[in-house]
Design a protein around this nucleic acid. Structure first.
Lengths: 251, 251
DNA sequence: TATTGTTTCCGTATGGCCTACGGAAATGGG
DNA sequence: CCCATTTCCGTAGGCCATACGGAAACAATA
């Protein structure tokens, strides 16, 4: 399937849901069996356990013990529900750190990474047209405040922000991708690569790939950790180098 | 839908397809109406036009004027077809550049970016368990050769490689995400943001978001270009800073 | 030409998905 | 009791991947 799309529908309705604008009390009419919060919570639970692909309207309704179509009374559609899910888990970040601007940016990256770890389906949510809710906005404010304290010019802050934001979400997503695939297919990344040993035996050509061969012979791939360990250290390394570059560009 | 998954199935069969290992000629039996190449080409054409979500087996078969099930004679399943599509478009990169190691890495980033631009559905293809075909491998060889010339220690080359590869694919993906959404929904990114003007009017709180407000007042968001232009310069900026950091770390 | 072995083609069927529509059911006030 | 209002949800239409097995095409042989 292609990536889950959100951000559709009527902006006013979606924003009201994201910010939980309390509709004026309606003392008249049948009592609701479920609330928006319950729907979002149930949807997150399903996606956490079985992935975003398994998060169907029918599945969520079943989880709550109501009919499928009942959900549409509270939520305009699946796209908007995904918006609500994403903003909700982004609110789980605890962004109240002190320290230098670098420490704060790294804290932000760490907390965001934790969200992806806890909710691997975030990999499948596009962030180019993000849910403009409190979860996203609080995060933006936090990073921008940190970058603004770095001494960069205002215009540079916004450019650096896009780069940092892109790196953090991208790295967290690809790190989590492995786990998500492991859960979905029942095969770990290490085992997947192991099963592709045939490739090195039957297809790899040392003459076509001299640089890779040289690195291999130099022991560059003799790592002790698992695939997940390596992806974790690459995340930290890449962010460090990016911040080094941003810092260096200020001089 | 969640991200399209590939890399499943029997490794030996998939590798044989990726490297087009010619099965021994079969002069006996009914003549095939379609070839693997035709199927892959048709699938890419559909995905280019209508996105990976529209690339169904039925749709591809229709494109070729054959029955849906005929495809399964030549390709094990949809996952493997996506593997073949991805490796095929990665082969479109022309990676024969001269220059310093930095110039070559930037050339690689530029060519990879071009692939995503031409085939936006690549955003939806996971690269954590990549198709081990010539398209992917030639790219890896090219970057590793460049990084190995930078003077980094072998072990450091592999770490930097993961960071660069992650950045390039991540940035190209999010850049293209916007265009893909524009094509799928018929609404451009600029127009989408315009429709969310309500947010700034009704929900944005200057006291809750002082850093954003200050940047706004400083004119940091007074850009003349389109959203696409800004994403493009962020791509270049981020890669530059990342390479600065890698270079600086060698000292 | 008729037969046989081999390969490809593809119709059918199963079980899933989202959501438009409209009627039934519940609730509080008069 | 009646009625306005709100929520609940069954049905139905049109998508999807792919397992299965028989029909059809072709080359070599008799």
């Amino acid at each position: 399937m292609a990536a889950e799309r959100s951000g559709g529908g009527d902006p006013a309705r979606t924003l009201a849901l994201l910010w939980r604008t309390p509709a004026e009390p309606k003392p008249v009419g049948r009592k609701p069996k479920v609330s928006v919060d319950q729907i979002v919570t149930a949807a997150i639970a399903v996606a956490d356990r079985e992935g975003l692909g398994a998060m169907s309207m029918a599945r969520v309704a079943q989880e709550l013990g109501v009919g499928t179509m009942s959900l549409y009374t509270h939520v305009p559609g699946k796209g908007e529900l995904i918006d609500l899910m994403a903003d909700t888990v982004l609110q789980e970040r605890d962004l109240a750190a002190e320290g230098t601007w670098r420490e704060r940016v790294k804290h932000y990256a760490d907390r965001t990474r934790a969200v992806y770890q806890a909710h691997p389906w975030m990999r499948d949510v596009s962030m180019v047209r993000p849910p403009l809710g409190p979860g996203l906005m609080d995060g933006q404010e936090f990073v921008l405040a940190a970058l603004a304290d770095s001494g960069l010019e205002p215009r540079q802050v916004t450019v650096a922000h896009v780069a940092v934001e892109g790196f953090v979400h991208g790295a967290a997503a690809s790190e989590v991708d492995d786990q998500q695939l492991a859960a979905a297919t029942g095969e770990s990344g290490d085992s997947w690569w192991g099963a592709r040993q045939v490739f090195w035996d039957d297809y790899f050509d040392v003459e076509r790939y001299p640089a890779m061969t040289a690195l291999w012979n130099a022991g560059a791939y003799d790592t002790e950790g698992t695939l997940a360990d390596n992806m974790r250290s690459s995340f930290d390394y890449g962010l460090d180098k990016l911040l080094d570059g941003i810092e260096g560009g200020m001089r």
